[in-house]
Amino acid sequence: MLAAAAQDADREFSFNEQEFRYIADLVKTKTGIVLADHKKNMVYSRLARRLRALRLESFEAYCSFLESGDSEDEMGMFINAITTNLTRFFREPHHFDHLAEKMSEQFGNAPTASRIRIWSAGCSSGEEPYSVAMTMAESLTRLSAYNFRILATDLDTSMVANATAGRYRLRDAEGLSKARLAKWTIQDRSRNEMTIKQGLRDLITFKQLNLLHDWPMKGKFDAIFCRNVMIYFDGPTKDRLLNRFHSCLAPGGWLYIGHSETILEQRDQLIPMGKTIYRKALR
């Protein structure tokens, strides 16, 4: 208790338990993300920037502003500040090896114009869907002859904007081989930047989407990547999301989840096929 009081005294803004609970409840309502008590310091550090930007003097004032009817624009900034965006190219590479193998088996000899759809749900700054695009372009040499698209969605509007631009620091190229770096990016070493080539970017549609709200997509997906997203949801929210993913997958479609995530209750619908890889039954 004394340590917590001393920490509060050292902070730029006071931040009490009631304010944290209000913010945690709001985050849960808006995003489904559950903020445990040990996340209080993280919440403070991320939202203190918003208080400075708005020239507010306290978290009490910020909570009041969020609760007012004048905070619609700020609500987006609030959500963007809270959500975590940790990713890199070809993170958990076994997923991309598996995708290449299975998509090549399924579509390698399929008629041209065959429809192929992949969804990156929680795409963050875009490294995941660009990794998917590289994988598909390399494993299906006639990819341009197919009706192929990747949908990439994220809750954070700033991440969607960054992903759409396809521009990264060269140090973010970790995970890309030299061959892939040369083939799929344009490098500007004077600015320490790289940009994903337009042909690859054209394969992806980036959209802002809250996974807990309505989904406008109508067609089925051959694969869905939703990795390190469900760890922030409670059990009932996770179960509902998995049921919705199941409904969106084509028969035999694949679901890839994060290394720290598990599926227990849905194993009759989503069959484990490898490390954090699941498949919808063919019937």
Rank of each mutant, 00 (worst) to 15 (best):
L211M: 04
A250D: 07
F89I: 01
L2S: 13
R167I: 15
A36F: 08
T185F: 13
I204N: 02
S247K: 15
T185W: 08
E67H: 12
L241V: 05
A163E: 07
C63F: 00
A4K: 14
S45Y: 06
A152P: 01
Q208A: 13
F245R: 04
F221V: 08
R240M: 10
K238C: 06
N85E: 01
N80M: 04
I116E: 01
S190N: 15
H246G: 09
H246D: 03
K183S: 14
F20L: 03
N16K: 04
I224L: 05
S114G: 07
G199S: 12
N109A: 14
G108F: 09
L170N: 09
P272N: 03
E74I: 03
I224Y: 02
I231H: 02
L212I: 12
L241C: 04
N243Y: 02
Q198M: 10
S64E: 14
N147G: 08
Q269L: 15
A24N: 07
N147F: 11
M134C: 01
R91T: 03
I150C: 07
I118F: 08
L170D: 10
V34K: 06
M77W: 13
E128C: 02
M136K: 03
L155P: 08
D8M: 13
D10P: 08
G69E: 10
K178L: 14
K28C: 11
H38I: 09
E60H: 13
R267T: 15
L51M: 07
W184D: 07
S125N: 11
S131Q: 08
Y278W: 02
R11P: 09
L282V: 15
T164K: 12
I231V: 01
S260V: 01
D234G: 09
F13S: 00
R50T: 08
S14D: 13
D154T: 02
G108M: 02
A100G: 10
L170F: 06
G69R: 05
A5L: 15
D214N: 14
V132C: 09
L209C: 01
L211F: 05
M77R: 15
R201N: 06
S125M: 04
R167H: 12
Q208S: 13
K28D: 12
K218Q: 15
F90P: 04
I231D: 02
E17C: 05
Q266V: 05
A48D: 00
M217P: 00
L181Y: 11
I82A: 02
D268I: 11
R50C: 02
L270D: 05
S190G: 15
F20R: 07
A161C: 06
S144L: 13
F245E: 03
S114V: 07
N85K: 04
G175H: 07
